[in-house]
Amino acid sequence: MSSIMKIENLQAKIGDKEILKGLNLELEPGKVHAIMGPNGAGKSTLSKAIVGHYDVDVTDGNIIYKNQIINDIAPEKRALEGIFLSFQHPVEIPGVNNAYFLRTALNAKRKHEGKEELDAAAFLRLMKEYLTLLDMKSDMISRSLNVGFSGGEKKRNEILQMMLLEPEVIILDEIDSGLDIDALRAVSEGINKMKDGKRSFLVITHYSRILDYIKPDYIHVLKEGKIIKTAGPELVAQLEEHGYDGIEEE
């Protein structure tokens, strides 16, 4: 099957430090790809490189999305084209109303797609539906963006954005970190509802716990800046038993 995103020989550094050292990865439409790896392997750098984060300097290789090299495409253009990153640590922005932010983002996307912008009433109706689905308090959209949110609320807010923007490639960077069981379940349900057989998911995680809720199709082991092994979900058990040291590069 042809891939929606293909990463070829990606080399990237942050500052002077080389992190990604010739990484290759293909994301298939409709599949859940999990990236696992030890601390410092380059998992977050990979996610940042895909969305065009200013920290990451891509020195070689290509990120190809829908048959187009996007290395030099601005972050907002990547987002409008359907790439979404759920941040490990969503930033707090005092003074920016969450609802205003969400509506601005949604309308930017709709405008990009040639659709009419959503008015306030229609937006609020949509919000009500998603808030219920994610078991979020209604006051969360009237507060400043992520300000004073608990860890779980921040992650729910990320999933809310994901549902609203309906991206085609969804990168979940440590989505399970800081979540209790109930929050993990609610977030996972939100993610699973987004599965439509076309969207691709890239789940970046340290632990297998999240993979009990979001069933992966592929497990990729990222170590020292490269994908050293790709296998099916059965690889999780092996990793649990032997750790990353027990995995040999293919």
Binding site: P75, E76, A79
Partner: peptide, 18 residues
């Protein structure tokens, strides 16, 4: 903060304005 807004499809200028 600027990047966070941009990563949601909000243009650089609009993100600055926000």
């Amino acid at each position: 903060q600027l990047f966070y807004l941009e990563s949601r499809g909000i243009s650089h200028v609009e993100a600055k304005k926000i």
